[in-house]
Simulated assay, not measured.
Amino acid sequence: MEPNEPINTKFYQLGNGGSLIFEHDLNAVSDFLGRPHPEFHGVQLDDTPGGELQWVITADLRGKMEPPTSERILFSFRESNWLDGLARGLQEALARLCGQNVVRILASRYAHLGEAIKLLNNDRKSLRQQRAKKDATIHRLRARIASLEATVKAQEDQIRQLEDDDGGIDIQGGDAFLSDDNDFEEDENTEEEDYEFLEAGPDDYVPIDVEDEE
Rank of each mutant, 00 (worst) to 15 (best):
L141W: 08
G114K: 06
R72L: 11
N101I: 02
A59I: 02
L33N: 03
F75I: 04
R160H: 12
N4W: 14
K125L: 13
Q54W: 07
D166R: 15
A154F: 01
P207F: 08
E214H: 02
E196V: 06
V102N: 04
Y195K: 05
G50A: 05
F177D: 15
D181K: 11
D204R: 02
G174V: 00
D164C: 10
R62H: 12
D60G: 00
R124W: 09
Q130P: 00
H41Y: 15
I208S: 06
E185C: 12
E66C: 10
L33M: 05
E39W: 00
D135T: 13
R35N: 07
N81R: 05
F77T: 06
V56T: 14
E213S: 06
L45E: 04
D170C: 01
K153T: 10
L74H: 15
Q13C: 08
R35L: 09
V29L: 01
L141D: 11
E213Y: 09
E52R: 13
L74M: 15
S108D: 07
G17N: 01
L148K: 06
H139D: 12
P3E: 04
L33H: 02
A59V: 05
R140Q: 14
N81K: 04
D31G: 00
D204Y: 05
E115T: 14
P38C: 01
E213F: 09
T9P: 00
G167S: 06
E199R: 08
R78E: 08
R96F: 09
